[in-house]
């Protein structure tokens, strides 16, 4: 756990203030609860932002190809490992652009090699191919790391400690939500106001018709993957800054959770994915705050099943109709 529960001067000060002048038990209890859980809330918002960056990759790919890109979480992990190796050789500031570019290249390559040949195959084959890529990336990571956890380098400006309302935390916790929102706004502008964005929207609406209208499907799909991987690379820089090390399977869980977030918000919808990711990140960390750490992962999936049963299209999803 990242934030110890004890020693929060803010809570104590409010409590003493309350008990002296206001004598309102209720207020004291509430502020006590908030200040005790503030670190978890902050961590939740931060994790939520990181999940959001991954979830956008899932939701965009699903919107266009109707494919759960199981390899996306592993791309995220590979970005973490590249950071470890490059920054060991050249220092963190050189490593950041290298990580971003190499992750984008990896996403492009995966799409071209593993998904493009299966464009006309049944959906199940493409999904199996995605699982195969995920298996390949994990095994390659296992081979290169020798199975040892790789210590993630501290990026100086992200790892700086700050104190906010008495809760000490890394700067990355505060930067993440801001950066996430900025990136999402830029992405939305890109999608709504550029030619490429228009093509993407058209392809996700109707694959075949847009092809007939002269849209170059392959370049649109590649762009989608590259954007998704760019965001995943940023997400990995932020996410792993909070953890000490990267292992070959560390992409799996965040990947799955980000996917759940995408489903939660309505798959195919970017604002939905972002909101879903924040909700999941906050809930997960509050669960930890309540001492139910063992169930914080399981809770995400309970949420998934509830949303799938109650409203399968998610919060912002469009109703899909099947034509017979």
């Amino acid at each position: 756990m990242r934030f110890p529960r004890g020693a929060d001067p803010f809570g104590q000060r409010i409590y003493s203030l309350c008990s002296k002048s206001f004598r309102k038990e209720e207020l004291c209890k509430m502020s006590d609860f908030i200040s005790a859980n503030l670190p978890y809330l902050l961590a939740g918002i931060s994790t939520g932002g990181q999940y959001a960056l991954i979830a956008i990759g899932y939701t965009m790919v699903y919107g266009i190809l109707r494919l759960i890109n199981f390899a996306h979480g592993d791309v995220f992990m590979v970005a973490g490992l590249v950071m470890v190796y490059v920054s060991a050789a050249f220092g963190p500031y050189v490593a950041i652009p290298v990580v971003i570019i190499s992750t984008m290249v990896l996403g492009f390559a995966i799409e071209r090699v593993a998904y493009k040949p299966l464009r006309s195959a049944p959906r199940m084959s493409v999904m199996i191919s995605a699982i195969g890529v995920s298996y390949l990336l994990q095994n390659c990571a296992l081979y290169f790391t020798g199975g040892l956890p790789q210590v993630y380098p501290a990026i100086p400006f992200l790892a700086k400690s700050v104190t906010i309302f008495g809760a000490t935390t890394k700067l990355v916790t505060l930067i993440t939500p801001v950066l996430t929102i900025v990136l999402v706004v830029v992405l939305m502008l890109l999608i709504n106001h550029t030619k490429m964005g228009m093509a993407m929207r058209a392809v996700s609406k109707d694959f075949e018709t847009s092809q007939l209208m002269g849209i170059k499907i392959n370049s649109v799909i590649s762009t989608t993957f590259v954007i998704g991987c760019f965001l995943a690379a940023i997400g990995s820089l932020l996410y792993f800054s909070n953890y000490t090390s990267v292992i070959p399977t560390s992409g799996g869980m965040p990947g799955l959770k980000a996917f759940v977030a995408a489903v939660f918000g309505g798959i195919g919808s970017i604002p939905g994915a972002v909101i879903g990711a924040f909700i999941i990140g906050i809930c997960e960390n509050l669960m930890k705050g309540l001492g139910l750490t063992a169930f914080s992962d399981a809770f995400t999936f309970v949420l998934l099943i509830v949303i799938l049963v109650v409203k399968p299209t998610g919060i912002f999803g469009e109703k899909a109709t099947d034509k017979v």
Binding site: A114, S125, I128, G132, Y143
Partner: peptide
């Protein structure tokens, strides 16, 4: 060295998935 077997394996699996579905 350790893990190379699995890399070879997953490459073979990818080849099967892509070309001999």
């Amino acid at each position: 060295r350790d893990g190379f077997r699995k890399v070879v394996f997953s490459v073979v699996i990818m080849i099967i998935v892509l070309f001999f579905s």
